[in-house]
C-alpha cells in the first residue's frame, strides 16, 4: 500500500469574535483529498488555538463569514466539500459594514 500523502494548507481567521479582535494563521496538514470541512475541523487544534477555537467560533457569530480560497470568494456551507490542494490558502473573515 503506498504511503498516504499529506497536503499543507495555509489557514487564517481574521475579524472580531465575541467582541475581541482575532487574527490567527498557520499551516494545517491534511490528508490528500481533504476538504474545506476537514480543514475547519482540524485548524484550531493544528494551529495550537484549540482553547480559543477561532475557526469554530467564526461560524457561530451569526454574521456570514467571508471565506476566501486563494483569494477568491467561496460560499459556505454550500462548498464545504470542496477538495483542497497542496499549498492552498483559506481565509475566514468576519466583516461588518458601516461608516
Amino acid at each position: 500500500m503506498p504511503p498516504r500523502s499529506n497536503i499543507r494548507i495555509t489557514a487564517r481567521v481574521v475579524g472580531h469574535i465575541d467582541g475581541e479582535s482575532v487574527n490567527a494563521s498557520g499551516v494545517v496538514e491534511l490528508n490528500a483529498g481533504g476538504t474545506i470541512r476537514d480543514l475547519l475541523k482540524q485548524a484550531d487544534r493544528a494551529l495550537g488555538v484549540k482553547k480559543q477555537k477561532p475557526f469554530k467560533r467564526a461560524f457561530r457569530q451569526g454574521v456570514r463569514p467571508v471565506v476566501l480560497l486563494n483569494g477568491d470568494r467561496i460560499e459556505l456551507p454550500e462548498e464545504n466539500d470542496r477538495v483542497l490542494s497542496d499549498g492552498d490558502e483559506v481565509s475566514i473573515i468576519l466583516t461588518l459594514a458601516g461608516g
Binding site: 481574521v14 472580531h16 467582541g19 487574527n23 457569530q61 476566501l68 466583516t95 458601516g98
Partner: peptide, 26 residues
C-alpha cells in the same frame, strides 16, 4: 441571528476603525 450585539461590542471597543483590515481582506 445576533450580529447586532457583536457590532455593538466592536463599535464600543474600536469604533468603525475595527473594520479596516478585515474589510480590505474580505
Amino acid at each position: 441571528r445576533q450580529p447586532a450585539d457583536l457590532f455593538r461590542l466592536m463599535m464600543s471597543k474600536y469604533g468603525t476603525a475595527s473594520m479596516t483590515a478585515m474589510s480590505a481582506e474580505s
